[in-house]
Write a protein that binds this DNA or RNA. Structure first.
Length: 423
RNA sequence: GGAGAGGUGGCCGAGUUGGUCGAUGGCGCACGCCUGGAAAGUGUGUAUACCCCAAAAGGGUAUCAUGGGUUCGAAUCCCAUCCUCUCCGCCA
C-alpha cells in the first residue's frame, strides 16, 4: 500500500496518477486526509494526558515512599479522570487508525510515468519481439494431443487423483519438467541470484505481506486445520523473508531465485484458456525476486527483463515483451512487462512471465526497510518476475518443435534432459 | 500427542518481594583519541513507530513474543493466544 505520508503530502498528484489505472480515488483519498488530521489531533491529546499520568504516578510513588499517605491518596483521585480521558482518546485513535488502514488497502499502486494509457490487454505496447516463428505442417496438433501421442502428460489421471488442473507428467514429460527447472535455476545462479528453497505453505501474516490477503483470499488453497495457505507463487515466501527487516544499503540489491510448485484455485476460469497446460491448479515455476533501493530499482527491472529474454532466446521460442497499460496492470504493480511466447499449433500467444517493479508498495506492507549511508531508514523497492513458469513453456516447446520424427529439444536444454528428441 | 522450561534491544545476557527501566553489562558496529601503520588500550555514540516544533536542536507517547486484565504505577503479578527448546511417544 501507499504510505500515509505520501498521500497527505502529494494528494493531488496521487489522485491524478491513479486515473491511469482507471481508479477514481478522490473520495477515498480526501477521506484519508481528513482522518489523518483527526488522527494527529487525537494522538497529541492522548499523548499529553499520558505524559501527565506518568509524572503523577511518579509523584505518588515518591509520596508513598516519604510516608505521606494523605497527599498520595489525594493525587490518586486526580488519576481517575485522567485515566478516563486516556482510554477514551486511545479508543478513538485506534478506531481512526483502523479506518485509515481499511481505506489505504483499497488504493492501488501508482503507475510509473512510462505506463501507457489504456484499459484492456489490446492497449498494451509491444516493446520488442524476437525468435523465429516455426513453419509447421498442416498436420500440426496442439500440445494436449502431442502429450497424449507421446504419453508425456496424463490429464485424465490427474482428474482421477485430484481433479482437473492437476496433470500427471510421465516419462520424458516428467524429465522435461525436471530439466527445465534445473535449467532455469542454473541460469539464475549464473546471473547472480541466490537460490533459496522456501516453504510451500505460508501463514496469514505472509499472505498479507505480499498482498494476496485479504483481497485475493479466494484464489489460494487454504488448510483450515492449521490456518495455512498453499503458495500461489514462490514470490510469497521469498519476499516475506524480508518482512519486518531493516537491511543495510550495502546488501542491496538482494537477488533471490526459487523453484516451487504453485497452487492456484483459478476460480472463474473456463473455456479454451484452461485447455491442456494453458491454466492449471498446480504448476512449476522458477521465480526471481529482488529487493533494491529506490534509486536503482528500475535498473534492476531492466536487468530482470533482459535476463528473462535470454531464457526464451536460449529455448529458441518466438517471443514478445509487452509493456502493460494502466488498465491491465495488477493492483500492486508500478510497472510490469509481460513475456509471451507463441504457441504455433494453438496459434496464440501464451503469457509465460510477468516482471514487475512494486516500488515501495509491497515493502510498506512488509515493513521491509533499509538503512542509508547517512543512517536514515527508508522503504525498499521490491521486484519480482517469473523465470519462468513451466506449463506454457512446455506447451510452446511441444507445439513449435513437432516434426514427423518427433519433438525436437532445443540445444541449450539437451544437457538437462539427456535426450534430443521425444519420439 | 504427553510432561517440563522459556520467549528482553543487531547478538549474548542482567533484571520477576511492581516505582524515574527503553531497560546494567558484554559482543558487534560507527566516529574520535592513542600509533609510523595496525592490534591492544581508551572516549563517545549506537532500536522502531508515531506526535509536537517551519527545520535543526529539543520534547512527548508507545513498544521487554502477541492480545487482554489487576494497579496511581508492570519487563516484573493474573488470564488467553502464538512460538522456541528439552525429555517421552510417533515417524520420512
Amino acid at each position: 500500500m501507499l504510505t500515509l505520508k505520501y498521500i497527505t503530502e502529494n494528494t493531488d498528484e496521487v489522485i491524478a496518477r491513479l486515473k491511469k489505472k482507471h481508479f477514481d480515488g478522490s473520495d477515498i483519498i480526501n477521506n484519508i486526509v481528513e482522518l489523518d488530521e483527526r488522527r494527529k489531533i487525537t494522538q497529541t491529546a492522548a499523548d499529553n494526558f499520558s505524559a501527565e499520568m506518568n509524572s503523577l504516578s511518579r509523584e505518588i510513588g515518591l509520596l508513598f515512599k516519604a510516608g505521606k499517605q494523605v497527599e498520595a491518596n489525594e493525587a490518586k483521585e486526580k488519576t481517575i479522570t485522567l485515566k478516563e480521558n486516556i482510554s477514551k482518546l486511545s479508543e478513538q485513535r485506534d478506531e481512526i487508525e483502523q479506518k485509515l488502514q481499511d481505506l489505504l488497502v483499497l488504493i492501488p499502486n501508482l503507475p510509473h510515468q512510462s505506463v501507457p494509457e489504456g484499459k484492456h490487454a489490446e492497449d498494451n505496447i509491444t516493446e520488442r519481439t524476437g525468435g523465429v516463428f516455426p513453419e509447421l505442417g498442416t498436420d500440426a496438433v496442439p500440445h494436449w494431443d502431442l502429450a497424449k501421442k507421446y504419453d508425456l502428460i496424463d490429464f485424465e489421471l490427474g482428474v482421477k487423483i485430484s481433479g482437473a488442473g492437476f496433470p500427471v507428467y510421465k516419462g520424458k514429460g516428467a524429465r522435461l519438467q525436471r530439466a527445465l527447472i534445473n535449467f532455469f535455476l542454473d541460469n539464475a545462479r549464473d546471473a547472480g541470484y541466490l537460490e533459496v528453497q522456501p516453504p510451500y505453505v505460508v501463514n496469514a501474516a505472509s499472505g498479507y505481506g505480499t498482498g494476496q490477503l485479504p483481497d485475493k483470499e479466494g484464489q489460494m488453497y487454504h488448510c483450515n486445520l492449521d490456518d495455512l495457505y498453499l503458495i500461489p507463487t514462490a514470490e510469497v515466501p521469498v519476499t516475506n523473508i524480508y518482512r519486518d527487516v531493516i537491511l543495510d544499503e550495502k546488501e542491496l540489491p538482494i537477488k533471490n531465485t526459487a523453484y516451487s510448485a504453485c497452487f492456484r484455485r483459478e476460480a472463474g476460469s473456463y473455456g479454451k484458456d484452461v485447455r491442456g497446460l494453458n491454466r492449471l491448479h498446480q504448476f512449476d515455476k522458477v521465480e526471481i525476486v529482488r529487493i533494491d533501493t529506490p534509486e536503482h530499482s528500475y535498473e534492476s527491472l531492466t536487468e530482470m527483463v533482459n535476463y528473462v529474454q535470454s531464457l526464451v532466446e536460449k529455448l529458441e521460442l518466438p517471443w514478445r515483451i509487452l509493456r502493460l497499460c494502466g488498465g491491465d496492470m495488477s493492483f500492486t504493480s508500478a510497472l510490469t512487462f509481460d513475456f509471451e511466447v507463441y504457441s504455433a499449433a494453438q496459434q496464440r500467444w501464451l503469457e509465460v512471465s510477468s516482471v514487475s517493479n512494486f516500488e515501495s508498495y509491497q515493502a510498506n506492507r512488509l515493513k521491509c526497510r533499509y538503512r542509508t549511508a547517512d543512517k536514515k531508514t527508508q522503504l525498499c523497492h521490491t521486484l519480482n518476475g517469473s523465470a519462468l513458469a513451466l506449463p506454457r513453456i512446455v506447451a510452446a516447446l511441444l507445439e513449435n518443435n513437432q516434426t514427423p520424427e518427433g519433438i525436437r529439444i532445443p540445444k541449450a536444454l539437451v544437457p538437462y534432459t539427456g535426450f534430443e528428441l521425444i519420439d
